[in-house]
Amino acid sequence: MSDITGHPVGEGAPAIRDMEMSDLTRALRLGWKDFLRKPMMGLFFANVYVMGGWLIYLLLFVLEYEWLAIPLTFGFPLLGPFLAVGMYEVSRRLEAGQDTWARNEIFGVIWRQRLRQLPSMAWVVIVYFLFWSFFAHMLFALFLGPSALTNVTSSYAYLLQPEGITMLIVGGAFGAVFALVLFVLTVVSLPLLLDREVDFVTAMITSVAVVRQNPQVMLVWGAVIAGLTFLAMLPGLLGLYVVLPILGHATWHIYRFATVAAGDGVAR
């Protein structure tokens, strides 16, 4: 790994390091190792995500708003970084040499974050997700018209028409941009907020700075996250039971590789 070349972007923020592509495979290996060491923690947090997804789809079909499944399918993964906070804490402890603790200690750490900056960052993610859902709804109505919003609940033939295909292409392009912006803002900001006493704006600026200094590595990491998450969602979200914990733990190590040399003391 390269030496530190960047400077802290704000008070309390860490210096930024140059990264290498090998850091990505190393982070995934360490994420897999953390998952195997504490599998029940990873499965618990993944279960919250999977059950939440099933509940949303159940409510949509019971209330006959199936058309909302389209934006939610692409938008729901945007909440993943926040739900992985518990796994960041597990990896933080394992890295610091703590192998034994009560499960409630992890929940206690997460609960205490309500008095710090994580809630503000959570609102950024949630508002972003809601804005994407509204934007996708607007695209749907713009390309297919208001009548399709009611008829698509009984037939998805609208999506096979030229207007529907165009809507999917345009919506996919905008969705990719939305996801990229959120990725840039959160790729290291959430683990940073867990690790250090910084405000959420500084955390987001640090995250952007990491991507600017390591654009190729970070773009590949974003593609890895998107690809693995998409494949994990195909079998009824069941693949997320494995993929989400690994990515959650790996994200902690990405943060450490990008800002703090591996093996240094963990700030708290």
Rank of each mutant, 00 (worst) to 15 (best):
P71G: 06
P71I: 07
P71S: 12
P71T: 11
L72W: 09
L72C: 01
T73H: 10
T73C: 08
T73R: 09
T73D: 11
F74L: 14
F74G: 08
F74N: 02
F74P: 00
F74A: 14
F74R: 11
F74W: 13
G75Q: 07
G75H: 03
G75K: 05
G75M: 06
G75E: 03
G75W: 01
F76S: 03
F76R: 06
F76L: 14
F76K: 07
F76P: 01
F76T: 00
P77Q: 05
P77Y: 06
P77T: 03
L78C: 02
L78R: 11
L78T: 08
L79V: 01
L79P: 02
L79T: 03
L79F: 10
L79Y: 05
L79W: 06
G80F: 14
G80W: 08
G80E: 07
G80R: 10
G80I: 08
P81W: 09
P81M: 12
P81Q: 13
F82R: 04
F82I: 13
F82S: 04
L83I: 10
L83M: 15
L83Q: 07
L83W: 13
A84R: 15
A84L: 11
A84H: 07
A84W: 05
V85Y: 12
V85A: 13
V85M: 15
V85R: 10
V85G: 08
G86Y: 09
G86D: 10
G86L: 12
G86V: 10
M87S: 02
M87V: 00
Y88D: 01
Y88E: 02
E89I: 07
E89W: 06
E89F: 10
E89C: 02
E89D: 12
E89V: 09
E89T: 08
E89L: 09
V90D: 02
V90Y: 03
V90W: 03
S91Y: 01
S91T: 07
R92N: 01
R92Y: 02
R92I: 00
R92H: 09
R92T: 00
R93E: 03
R93V: 00
R93G: 00
L94C: 06
L94T: 01
L94S: 06
L94R: 07
L94M: 09
L94D: 02
E95Y: 14
E95N: 14
A96E: 11
A96C: 09
A96N: 13
A96F: 00
G97S: 08
G97W: 00
G97C: 05
G97L: 02
Q98M: 03
Q98I: 08
Q98R: 14
Q98L: 04
Q98A: 05
Q98C: 01
Q98P: 04
Q98F: 01
Q98Y: 05
D99A: 08
D99Q: 12
D99G: 04
D99P: 02
D99R: 13
D99L: 07
T100E: 15
T100R: 15
T100Y: 14
T100K: 15
T100S: 15
A102W: 10
A102Y: 12
A102M: 13
A102E: 15
A102I: 08
R103T: 10
R103S: 12
R103E: 09
R103C: 01
R103F: 11
R103I: 12
R103K: 12
N104H: 14
N104L: 13
N104Q: 14
N104R: 15
N104K: 14
E105N: 11
E105T: 09
E105Y: 09
